[in-house]
């Protein structure tokens, strides 16, 4: 007796092909062919555990993520022409990547994620800890979740590290990315939370220095009242924003250099006093600053 396989994902209860699903399939198959085979291959090789429908608990789904990643990787290669140094130093298993934050838009995170997917061996899915308000935004919250990006909650971070994942943290937070032009390539105060998590979960820390982000959207003034009104962390006044409207969001095509340093293994329980943790954090901070200084000295030009 032969059985007829019915694809329940397309047919509804009465067996009608639903218009929405049909349209989505059609568009999907068109876009699907636009995704680089290399990206698909590398997504398949990710060590992440997924369930029978290819989702993880946070909502990461490679079949959706490939489209967003295709764009990120195109930007990484051809827009920012990112040069990566020392990516082989990132150890396997759980790891925290700690970087300097810059550039108003979180392109530094996007570029680190692209580098870890395309240039690391084996490929890794980078998890960034995103701002809490992202979770309340329609479309954006879903988009972020499907691409493996996680709400910035310490409990989430611990769980990810226990699952041996690769997490990127910018301890400067929004104060770092909202830096003004005059403060470029300096670091504002680092939060201590990442170090406590690393100690608790015995996770190595890799300092990452990013060159090029500070010039992509130089901000001369932070219009705080406007930011507060709009519920944003900052409201930058740049040469192009807000003067050119939405076009002002387009960052300059600066050249990115990303330096990965040797992993640091810290000893401790995570319950030390703030001053003890601060000493350890300062070691990481110094490594990042040293590499930033080195990278700036090596750089001949902002754009190439």
């Amino acid at each position: 007796m032969s059985t007829v396989e019915v694809d329940h994902r397309v047919y509804n209860k009465e067996g009608n092909l639903t218009m929405l699903n049909m349209a989505l399939r059609l568009i999907g198959s068109q876009i699907d062919s636009a995704v680089d085979k290399e990206i698909k291959r590398r997504l398949k090789r990710l060590p992440n555990k997924l369930n029978e429908y290819n989702y993880d608990a946070w909502g990461f789904h490679p079949e959706v993520a490939q489209y967003g990643l295709q764009l990120c990787i195109w930007l990484y290669r051809y827009y920012w022409r990112t040069e990566v140094y020392g990516i082989e130093k990132v150890p396997e298993g759980r790891v925290l990547l700690i970087g300097n934050h810059s550039g108003q838009l979180p392109m530094d995170g996007v570029n680190i994620a692209s580098a870890m997917l395309m240039d690391a061996e084996p490929p890794r899915l980078v998890r960034t800890m995103i701002e809490r308000w992202f979770g309340t935004m329609p479309l954006i919250s879903t988009f972020a979740a499907r691409h493996g990006q996680i709400l910035g909650d310490p409990k989430n971070c611990v769980k990810l590290l226990e699952n041996d994942e690769c997490v990127v943290v910018f301890p400067e937070g929004a104060r770092g990315s909202g830096k003004l032009w005059y403060d470029r390539y300096t670091l504002v105060d680092f939060g201590l939370g990442f170090m406590r998590l690393a100690l608790k979960t015995k996770t190595p820390i890799v300092p990452v220095s990013i060159i090029g982000g500070e010039e992509q959207m130089p901000s001369f003034y932070d219009a705080k009242p406007l930011a507060k009104m709009l519920g944003l962390p900052y409201f930058p006044i740049t040469p192009t924003f807000p003067w050119l409207g939405l076009l002002g969001f387009v960052p300059f095509p600066t050249k990115y250099h990303i330096y990965f340093d040797d992993p640091l293994y810290f000893e401790g329980t995570g319950d030390e006093t703030d001053s003890e943790i601060q000493k350890k954090v300062d070691i990481v901070k110094k490594k990042i600053l040293d590499n930033v200084a080195f990278g700036l000295a090596q750089r001949k030009n902002i754009f190439w």
Partner: peptide, 9 residues
């Protein structure tokens, strides 16, 4: 409760 700030797990 369902909350945007809920951690996973």
């Amino acid at each position: 409760g369902a909350d945007p700030n809920n951690p996973v797990y």
